[in-house]
């Protein structure tokens, strides 16, 4: 049984420590939800785990079945079985979805057979219009269409673990249900383990979490069962936030051009 283990993970952006020690262990088929206020470090966590440039890992480890992912380039993390559904999927002009997925599959086993049919099947499962499959990647897709596009890719690549960074944003209620059910089905069919990052509990009514973690000020300040999500829905994050919400700086390779030079 596969395990994704994050231990003592600390990371900084532009010299500012955002993740101050994250510990979580996700087993195959489990769904862990990470909730928290804006600026808590949720997106940073997803980016650092996937290896996005611009973040500095200060300590800790992320292992998938014992393999240290932090030592691998991003594409090898993906090939090892990690998937990231991005909060803001990037538009890649002139590049088709099928070219990306076939290149990914070809890099290991060359199992690109029947990809077009599988793509149509995956699209049908979440009500994603086939016309979008032939568009250049994410170009001129609405926010909701982009999230469905991410879900189609998750279905094709069949990762062991998926980090879903606000997969619910931009989706209407019906689409949200279809997408959540698709991910839930993967947990049952192929034992997908999920780390789902969200602000709201509505996603979790379809994608049932085994554990819920509250991320605030760079740490998991509380963890519990699914009831914790319901509790947060009522009471908010006030109990877990000492000060006002911190702003989570976006990672820029060149550093923040608006940073105070005297700070």
């Amino acid at each position: 049984m596969s395990t994704l283990k994050i231990s003592g993970l600390r990371a900084a952006v532009s010299g500012k420590e955002i993740l101050k020690g994250i510990d979580v262990e996700i087993k195959a088929g489990e769904v862990h939800a990470v909730m928290g206020p804006n600026g808590a470090g949720k997106s940073t966590l997803s980016h650092v785990v996937m290896g996005k440039p611009g973040y500095e890992v200060l300590g800790g480890s992320v292992t998938l079945d014992g393999t240290e992912l932090l030592d691998l380039p991003t594409w090898e993390r993906s090939q090892a079985g990690l998937f990231l559904a991005m909060q803001y999927p990037t538009e890649v002009p002139g590049v088709s979805l099928i070219d990306v997925l076939s290149s990914s599959l070809a890099a290991v086993e060359g199992d690109g057979d029947d990809l077009a049919r599988r793509l149509r099947d995956e699209a049908d499962r979440i009500g994603f219009d086939h016309q979008f499959l032939s568009r250049p990647l994410n170009v001129d897709l609405s926010g909701g269409e982009k999230k469905r596009n991410e879900t189609v890719q998750l279905g094709i690549l069949e990762p062991k673990f998926a980090v879903l960074d606000e997969l619910d944003s931009g989706l209407d209620v019906d689409a949200l249900r279809l997408v959540a059910r698709r991910v839930e089905a993967a947990t049952e069919e192929s034992g997908l383990g999920v780390l789902v990052i969200t602000h709201y509990s509505r996603l979790l009514s379809e994608l049932k979490p085994d554990r819920v973690h509250v991320l605030a000020q760079g740490r998991f300040v509380a963890s519990g069962g699914p009831e914790l999500a319901d509790e947060l829905e009522v009471s908010g994050y006030g109990a877990y936030v000492d000060e006002g919400p911190e702003t989570e700086p976006a990672a820029t390779v060149a550093g923040d051009p608006f940073a105070d030079p005297l700070a």
């Binding site: 440039p53 991003t74 594409w75 991005m86 590049v95 990914s104």
Partner: peptide, 16 residues
């Protein structure tokens, strides 16, 4: 860089 990261995150090797 973002386009690169997106494709890498899908398991596409850097040269490809």
């Amino acid at each position: 860089g973002d386009q690169r990261f997106y494709l890498h995150a899908r398991g596409v090797p850097p040269s490809v």
